[in-house]
Every structure is written in structure tokens, then in C-alpha cells.
């Protein structure tokens, strides 16, 4: 099935070489496969890493504009373009002036604290996002209890009706897609069915496991 798409990108990338020495063909194949493998794994790692930051951290930066002196350190260091510089106007009775301040674009902020670290006057502090709180020095979610995580339930509901054939559910399957109440029941009751169809819960578990191993890692600050 993948023959047509694979043939198409090859001519621009590598000259066709099956006619050559089989050893050379072997080396070429291994080389290109390794490169593709690295890219694929890297993409996956970046996805996991970003999700972990967005979802797991639960913190958000805020700027105290009375302290901020507009030095743009945080602006230059933000990896997620979550900081912008704006000119605030200050109007006194006889005098009007503008002063440059940093603002946080909350949609982009992932709570990595880099801006708070580089701020020379400590104008940036981290607060918990809505739905998170600090408990015993950890940022924990107040809304999602551990046994039934929220992202799992809707994801579980959607693929179920699409892939019923392997499951042993002949009679109730036609009405189920219309029912909103059916999916949560199923997620609780049929335990053997729960693990196979979804990669998502497994990923989350893996991420949690990775997070626990991550504590021994050392940070890196890359500046272009």
C-alpha cells in the first residue's frame, strides 16, 4: 500500500540505486531509514514533551507591571512566544507618558518559568492556572480525580461506535452512537475492552512514568 508514496519522494532525495552493488543498496537503505527514524522519534518526543508542559504543569506567569521595567529579557527568552511588549500610558494631571511593559499571552504560556528566572527585578511570578492548586509543594489538579481522567472519557466515547466488530456487543450497538449516556457506562463496566483500542491512556501513563524519572535530569537553556 505504501509503495506509491514511497516511490514518489525518492527521485528528488536519492538517485535510484537498486541496480548498484547490493552492499551499496544496503548502506543506502540503512542510512535513509535511520534518518527517517530519528525524525519520527524526535517528532514524537516533542509532542509528548509539549503536552506534558501544557497539561501537567498547571502554572502561568503573571507580570507585576509596577515592578516591570521593560528590559525585554523575558521577551527574548520565551520559547513559546507567550510574552509581548506593550507601551502602557500613564496620565498624570499635568503630564502624560508611556512606559514599556511585558504582558503574558496566556494562551501560549506553558508555565515553564523561564521568564521568571531571567527577570532581573523579579517582576514575574508564577501562579496556578484555573483548576490547579498547590498542595504539599506540588501543583495538583483540583478537578480531575485520578481514576477517571477527563481526556480519556471523550476519547473513549468517540472510537467505540466506530469500531464495534471485534467487541461482543451485537444488539445494543446500533442505538449506542446516539445515546450520550452509554459511553460512560461502558468505560466502567467492560474491563477487558478498555485497554486495547486507545493509545491515549497508555501514553499518559508513560508520560507520568517519564515525569517521575525526569527528576534527575538537568535543564538546558538554548538560546539561538
Amino acid at each position: 500500500m505504501a509503495t506509491a508514496p514511497t516511490v514518489a519522494p525518492k527521485p528528488p532525495s536519492a538517485p535510484p540505486s537498486p541496480s548498484a552493488d547490493p552492499l551499496v543498496a544496503y548502506y543506502q537503505r540503512v542510512r535513509q531509514m535511520n534518518l527517517a527514524l530519528a525524525k519520527e522519534r524526535y517528532k514524537q518526543g516533542f509532542k509528548v514533551r509539549t503536552q506534558e508542559y501544557i497539561r501537567g504543569r498547571g502554572t502561568l506567569a503573571i507580570v507585576d507591571e509596577e515592578i516591570c521595567m521593560g528590559c525585554t529579557h523575558c521577551f527574548d527568552n520565551c520559547a513559546f512566544e507567550a510574552i509581548d511588549m506593550v507601551d502602557r500610558k500613564f496620565a498624570l494631571p499635568e503630564y502624560t507618558y508611556t512606559s514599556r511593559k511585558a504582558i503574558i499571552i496566556e494562551d501560549n504560556c506553558v508555565g515553564c518559568e523561564k521568564c521568571a528566572i531571567v527577570c532581573p527585578v523579579d517582576a514575574i511570578t508564577m501562579v496556578t492556572k484555573h483548576g490547579f492548586e498547590v498542595k504539599d509543594g506540588r501543583v495538583v489538579s483540583t478537578t480531575a480525580p485520578p481514576p477517571a481522567p477527563r481526556p480519556a472519557a471523550p476519547a473513549a466515547a468517540t472510537p467505540r461506535p466506530a469500531t464495534p466488530p471485534p467487541a461482543a456487543r451485537p444488539a445494543p450497538s446500533p442505538p449506542t452512537p446516539a445515546k450520550p449516556a452509554a459511553p460512560p457506562e461502558r468505560t466502567e463496566t467492560p474491563s477487558p475492552e478498555a485497554p486495547p483500542p486507545k493509545p491515549e491512556p497508555e501514553e499518559e501513563e508513560a508520560e507520568e512514568a517519564e515525569e517521575s524519572t525526569e527528576e534527575s535530569e538537568t535543564p538546558e537553556e538554548d538560546e539561538g
Binding site: 514533551r49 508542559y53 504543569r57 502554572t59 520559547a79 508555565g111 515553564c112 518559568e113 523561564k114 521568571a116 528566572i117 523579579d122 511570578t125 508564577m126 501562579v127 498547590v134 509543594g137 506540588r138 501543583v139 525526569e214 527528576e215 535530569e217 535543564p219 538546558e220 537553556e221
Partner: peptide, 13 residues
Amino acid sequence: MMETEYGPGRTIP
């Protein structure tokens, strides 16, 4: 700077 579970310095990606 808030103390997170990783400490302040741990959070640089």
C-alpha cells in the same frame, strides 16, 4: 518564583 515539584531551576526545558 514559585516552588514547583521540580524546584525552580528544573523547569527550563
